[in-house]
Design a protein around this nucleic acid. Structure first.
Lengths: 131, 131
DNA sequence: TATTGTTATACTCTATAACTATA
DNA sequence: TATAGTTATAGAGTATAACAATA
């Protein structure tokens, strides 16, 4: 039942991401690093549900575009300290705002109470999923 | 926000489908054909959001397993009349019931009103997506 | 020897284009 | 010539395994 809805949402979001030069995974990384810096790439990969080999190219590109920092940890030079840059946060905020405006296309059709319940339930269920 | 939830749901459903020898697309086909028979493969593909080349292998397998019928239309021998078989319906019902039991793991945590609102909103939004 | 990040490889999924048969 | 279905091919996305650097 969710499938058509999800397809429609992804179809609406991809052009927004593309306009800012971001992939879906790149955006996920920025959102994760905006919450807090992360000490290893493997931890980041797990946080966004990717695997560690998959995020490398994504991090390469984000770093090259100046959206993230990736420093060798002086205490364990195998690890890479990952953090979002000011520019990265700017791009993330812009994209996030635009996506949320797009979501109004859907949520705007709901009554205030329906909307509140729906978003709350969604959040509860997401918590269960990862637990 | 939906991503982790969706991943968890798919992860829960795949083993059920596999246990019955079905792929996700195969299941989609059975659900679509259970609603009504369809006169061309292209129409079926569109109905489930696939493309016509992608469903061919799926139909081959479903037919081989006796879950669907695929007859050349006597009035236009280019077209294939598609229908679910009794066995196909049995498998589909079994899988559907099992998946719904699995969904209780999530929905069961909600209050009755939350649950009703959530499912209704989901259905409304899905309608918007395809419209 | 174990771990972090990386590269190389193979595998799956999907889309595009060419082909066959009917019309 | 146009359409339904099929096959062949190529591309993207993903996972697995081997590798280099560091501990």
């Amino acid at each position: 039942m969710l499938a058509p809805l999800i397809r429609a949402m992804i179809a609406a979001e991809l052009p927004v991401l593309a306009a800012h030069g971001l992939s879906m995974w790149g955006y996920s990384v920025l959102v994760a690093l905006d919450r807090s810096a992360i000490r290893t790439q493997a931890a980041l990969a797990e946080a966004i549900g990717a695997d560690k080999t998959r995020i490398i190219a994504i991090l390469d590109e984000l770093q090259q575009n100046g959206l993230i920092e990736r420093l060798a940890d002086p205490e364990d030079r195998r690890a890479r300290l990952l953090a979002i840059t000011k520019e990265g946060r700017r791009v993330k905020d812009a994209v996030q705002a635009e996506i949320q405006r797009g979501e109004e296309r859907w949520l705007g059709t709901l009554s205030a109470t329906d909307r509140a319940v729906f978003l709350r339930v969604l959040q509860e269920l997401s918590g269960l999923g990862s637990a």
